[in-house]
Design a protein around this nucleic acid. Sequence first.
DNA 1: CTCCGAGTTGAGAATGATTCCCACTAGCGA
DNA 2: TCGCTAGTGGGAATCATTCTCAACTCGGAG
Lengths: 133, 133
Amino acid sequence: MKRRTWQRAAVQDALTGRDDFVSAQALHSQLRADGSSIGLATVYRALADLAEEGEADSLQAEGESLYRACASPGHHHHLICRSCGRTVEIEADDIEAWAASTAAAHGFRDPQHVVDVFGTCAACAARQDARIP
Amino acid sequence: MKRRTWQRAAVQDALTGRDDFVSAQALHSQLRADGSSIGLATVYRALADLAEEGEADSLQAEGESLYRACASPGHHHHLICRSCGRTVEIEADDIEAWAASTAAAHGFRDPQHVVDVFGTCAACAARQDARIP
DNA sequence: CTCCGAGTTGAGAATGATTCCCACTAGCGA
DNA sequence: TCGCTAGTGGGAATCATTCTCAACTCGGAG
Ligand SMILES: [Mn+2]
Ligand SMILES: [Mn+2]
Ligand SMILES: [Zn+2]
Ligand SMILES: [Zn+2]
């Protein structure tokens, strides 16, 4: 029996309020800065729960876990700006089929896959070009 | 000027001697068990160097970095058994093209991608089936 | 071959993210 | 409302990885 606490709601709201992948630490700092008294361990627990329930997507970058409340309810992948973190949700049935058939072709059962694309978004690219010349 | 030391050679040899992804800690333990006096920090450094030089591939799993000396010299991906770690190297030009075009379609520059497939290999699947019934 | 200097090593300390501990708090069903 | 117990949070503990730095050793110059 899961209980509804304002802490869980606060984490979910904070996550929904942004469109980039964020770490537990960063989200905790943001919540504290906004006046919340939520604890760090609770933010970690809430994010882990959200990810397990499928309410949030997670990925590993530079040794830390990042989370995002995605708009697409189903399975999808991400195109992520490595500079500002802005993220585009991507659906690619071809990739799904490829992953499944590749696993099957080698006798692997219960396939899962990690597919993420990183790049520099147009805005960040323009900013970089303007600064360097 | 990069020097040739027996420590680097030992790490590379140990890595080449296995066909699964392995952590720095595990490789250090193995080397020590085989009588080497190599230090843990050195194993970390050697693996990082090998990865940077393209001599080894690396991926993140469960919060730790794993390394593998791959047979394919060029860019490729992996199909990994989540039970025993056995790895198959995969080349998929379709995926390369898809990643590049996806990034371009959204105005993202300098795309890179992470594509890994995990599953249970035939041997591990058979072992599990035999144990459970 | 010998010498010297800069790259390399390794034990232990430091770091940083994440988890654990546990006394206290607060959902929520009866 | 009452009691049970999941949830909370501050701080300690854990764990992978990096840093520190004195000692060491490649490898090119002479
Ligand atoms: Mn997919
Ligand atoms: Mn690729
Ligand atoms: Zn950007
Ligand atoms: Zn296996």
